[in-house]
């Protein structure tokens, strides 16, 4: 549990080091490995945010699928919001709806809430137990079940595969 958290933190920090230095020089790589390893061991033992990630090939495949689905949703929602903003009559229909999620792990909930927030048109305003309160720029269904079906399910199916 704890060693896995330290290992994933080390990997993330090392990727950051490579992105910022952009060289495969032997000395630089060794210094990077030493520094990031020390940082991960010293500071990442107590916070356990990464310990829920599964390191199986299936989880990696679903991560890629999730990124593709998310980018598609982002572009689609952006085109929709652009059309709404630029049309002269301003066809908006805002409101706050409530949806339920089935996810249990903290990381999956974080990713779900951030995805909902990043998609234009929907916005996570408050989280309480299993309920997300979402500000929606164009309310199609005010009831809980319908809104959940519309907003959450498409991300939730993939996240369930990723985090179990």
């Amino acid at each position: 549990m704890k060693t896995k958290n330290i290992f994933i933190s080390f990997l993330v920090l090392l990727i950051g080091w490579f992105l910022l230095t952009w060289t495969l020089d032997m000395k630089s790589v060794l210094i990077g490995i030493g520094l990031t390893g020390m940082l991960a061991i010293l500071f990442c033992g107590s916070c356990t945010i990464f310990s829920e990630i599964k390191l199986t090939p299936k989880a990696f495949a679903y991560t890629f699928i999730y990124l593709i689905v998310f980018m598609g949703e982002l572009v689609k929602a952006n085109i929709d919001v652009t059309r709404r903003v630029l049309s002269p009559s301003l066809p908006i229909n805002p409101g706050i709806v409530k949806v339920e999620t089935r996810l249990k792990s903290k990381m999956a909930r974080l990713i779900l809430a951030n995805s909902i927030t990043l998609t234009p048109g929907t916005f996570t305003l408050e989280v309480h137990d299993d309920a997300f309160y979402i500000h929606w720029i164009d309310v199609k269904h005010a009831e809980e079940a319908q809104a959940t079906e519309d907003l959450v399910r498409k991300f939730e199916k993939i996240l369930e595969e990723m985090y179990g």
Binding site: I92, N93, P94, G95, I96, V97, K98, A113, T117, F123, T124, L125, E126, Y133, H135, V139, A142
Partner: peptide
């Protein structure tokens, strides 16, 4: 998200077009 929570805590009213407010 933090900004919008602050706006809701300040009780800034929602606009007249608003349909539903479950919160």
């Amino acid at each position: 998200h933090v900004l919008m929570r602050a706006a809701y805590a300040m009780k800034i009213p929602l606009s007249k077009l608003t349909v539903v407010d479950k919160l």
